[in-house]
């Protein structure tokens, strides 16, 4: 089964880095990109993804605010918050929304663990 993942980051470079790993390891997933929270929510309204990776530090609404909004819209959707800001408070807030925290720079291993977990949860019916 093919799934769709939404990648939200104001940095095109950061999105490119995620997509490079997805292309290599998860070619079956469809990718949708957004550069900010507003664009991400518009994209979700038009065509809801199965999972989402969100940068924390973005202009406008940050990744944690977006995570809370996505959680409201899609309560079971696998979410990952990506940030170099690994302060305990940020990590705890990400986990409190039910999102995984993925440190930047993103490693193939960390992204792989998120994708494997997401795939398993989706197979069990999470969305």
């Amino acid at each position: 089964m093919s799934y769709k993942i939404l990648i939200v980051d104001d940095s095109r470079l950061a999105r490119m880095a995620v997509i490079k790993v997805l292309d290599a390891n998860y070619p079956g997933w469809t990718r949708v990109e957004a550069a900010n929270a507003d664009d991400a929510l518009r994209s979700v309204e038009e065509s809801p993804p199965d999972a989402a990776l969100l940068d924390f530090n973005m202009p406008g609404r940050d990744g944690l605010e977006l995570a809370a909004e996505l959680r409201r819209l899609k309560p079971l959707m696998p979410l990952g918050v990506i940030s170099a800001n690994h302060q305990q408070e940020i990590v705890a807030r990400a986990r409190a929304t039910g999102a995984s925290f993925l440190p930047k720079p993103l490693t193939e291993q960390a992204l792989g663990e998120f994708m494997e977990d997401a795939t398993q949860r989706l197979a069990k019916g999470a969305s």
Partner: peptide, 19 residues
């Protein structure tokens, strides 16, 4: 990509340090 790559690189390094 220079400007954006510099910002993102700086963001990762400085956030890592401050956090």
């Amino acid at each position: 990509l220079e400007q954006e790559a510099l910002a993102e690189t700086g963001n990762v390094i400085l956030n890592g340090c401050l956090a």
